[in-house]
Write a protein that binds this DNA or RNA. Structure first.
Lengths: 351, 351
DNA sequence: CTGAAAGCGCTAACAT
DNA sequence: ATGTTAGCGCTTTCAG
């Protein structure tokens, strides 16, 4: 509990060396390369270092080695609970590997994201990009210059973890079709969202072999606020069910529908995506897709560490970490926001 | 968009100097202290630096100056949406001042918090501690060694931003009393939570001059999961209303009450605290306390920057930033989870 | 196995 | 106004 300050009393490797009566290089070896120093001496040095409260300076260390032992996690909107699990899992894993993590909120802006990426280059050994808003080219080029792992973004030479919601869209459609819905709307997210585009095409694909009419509405901001507009757009159509780009939007839709006196699911079925905090206690609880976020975070961090190792001449990693593209399955969690399609007889009571 | 890598092709100040035909010190001055170099030369240097894609190495810079231009924000649980606004506001403000922010999740553990604090000492210029679980002594001592600003923690010589929920407890009590409640429970948070202790004593104080019976139950973990136990504890008493330590707990209580068939607010009134994401769309929407989190984050960051300035011999800050303890008011947001006491005829004739 | 010494990239005296 | 030079704390050859 006694971190030395930068200013005056900081204890350096020289202090430890003097106190132990050895050269600074010996201290350095004892601390970072045990085995290249005699065991009793090593123990003595470690003891003295602890006693003095010595912590090596990360700056000095990286000035020499080039490695910072920092990583960054970039996310578009820290206000979206979807990213919770990611932040927590990546931090835990990074810490376990001796890394500190910058969490950066890019505010849904490609510009901000690019700016941070450029600035960060010197401060971190690698970056995890979740739901990046950058173009494929920008990403590929950034990846050439800095170890990068993307989450939910598929680009040939950029390692990635994909949470495979598109694959699950088939289930979504089957769920709704089985409930008798024949006209379904997809309320899409931002145009720059790769996930949203993928979900839409997966949906279209699946619709081809099923007796449903599918339309897409939007784009909408992936926020609760945007839900009002999304709900109104939906009500302007003949649709009896909507699949929302994410849970934030779905919750907003639920709220707006409530205000307008449209009952869910009796008059309208609503599906979200991500199973965020709140999806289980909103009104009604949301049918949505759950994903192993913790696993995604851990995986992405491990992959990044492996890239960093490679780059700095460590031994080649072989196991899971060597794989370049991981795909994680999601599963449909059915709650109360979806139900049988309203029979053609009773019109819906829009206020 | 072309961050130089650490490894090979990185462009250093020497490259810029050579290319411009000047000394490295001149480049350094041109870039960090404009005015100490002739204007045309400065422009030329800046142009060349841009062209070459030069970014100064933060490590080298801090090795010399001692300043890292990094700050850290420590929070007990990144899974608690309460901290959203804080993370966002502090990051925005830090970035505006040219700082990068580490966000650290301490997992509600004083040990983890202390460990990070010690490690971080070398990597940051200062730390914002939100809802710290450390003891007063530990905090005071850490503060001597590193610029620290606390949020929701009041210690004599440690600058702080207090979100004054205790002061608002009077309103909570009046709200419930006016609805006819005479037996009220406080469902307390972790014992290490300063906020929880403060709220409880404010409540006791206020109860003295009012005709209510107050009891405290708990402690409970500040999570949705803990809400079930908290609800059951409450149901084991005569209580008709409960004030929960935070919204997470309150939402958990709401869920459990629903499972057990207890109607809210008809049978039981429930209040939360913080007005987090979800408080407005849970079922029923939660009566709770709202606070200016953005302002708190901005303020804390400014105060920290001011401390950092002082420490590094900058000029003394005078304005808002010089103040050492800021207190921010909160306000009661009444929604549907509180209502008239169930028993006999409602006092005040509230429907 | 250990010590001596040379830098990593940058800034800040100190010269000019 | 600009150039020269000496380190910041650490790791890493290179000697012993």
């Amino acid at each position: 509990m006694s971190a030395a300050p930068h200013g005056e009393g900081r204890v350096t490797i020289a202090d430890v060396a003097k106190s132990a009566g050895v050269a600074t290089s010996t201290v350095s070896r004892a601390l970072s390369r045990p085995g290249r120093v005699s065991e009793p001496l090593r123990q003595k040095i470690v003891a003295i270092a602890n006693e003095l409260g010595y912590y090596p300076s990360p700056q000095a260390r990286s000035l020499k080695s080039g490695r910072t032992h920092n990583v960054a996690l970039l996310i578009p909107d820290i206000t979206n609970p979807f990213f919770f699990g990611l932040v927590r899992a990546t931090q835990a894993q990074a810490r376990a590997r001796g890394y500190l993590q910058f969490v950066v909120n890019t505010e849904e802006s490609a510009g901000v994201e690019a700016a941070y990426l450029a600035e960060l280059g010197k401060s971190v050994d690698g970056v995890i990009l979740a739901a990046s808003r950058l173009s494929d080219d920008e990403l590929a080029s950034a990846s050439r210059t800095l170890p990068i792992v993307t989450i939910n973004r598929d680009i040939p030479n950029v390692p990635s973890v994909i949470i495979d919601t598109p694959a699950a869209m088939v289930q979504a459609l089957d769920h709704l079709v089985s409930l008798g819905h024949t006209s379904i709307a997809y309320l899409s997210g931002p145009e720059s969202s790769w996930s949203s585009r993928k979900r839409w095409s997966a949906l279209q694909q699946a619709a081809r072999t099923r007796a449903v009419h599918l339309r897409d509405l939007g784009p909408f901001a992936p926020t609760v606020q945007a839900g009002a507009a999304a709900a109104d757009s939906t009500l302007a159509t003949e649709t009896t069910a909507c699949i929302c780009f994410n849970d934030l939007l779905a919750i907003g839709v639920l709220q707006r529908l409530g205000e307008r006196g449209v009952r869910v699911p009796q008059d309208m079925s609503v599906m979200g995506c991500d199973d965020i905090f709140g999806a289980d206690f909103c009104n009604p609880p949301l049918t949505t897709f759950s994903a192993p976020l913790d696993q995604a975070g851990r995986l992405a961090t491990d992959m990044l560490m492996s890239l960093v190792q490679d780059r700095w001449g460590g031994r080649l990693a072989g196991g899971v970490e060597g794989r370049r593209h991981e795909r994680l399955s999601t599963y449909l969690t059915i709650r109360d926001s979806t139900g049988p399609a309203p029979s053609a007889a009773n019109a819906r009571g829009v206020a």
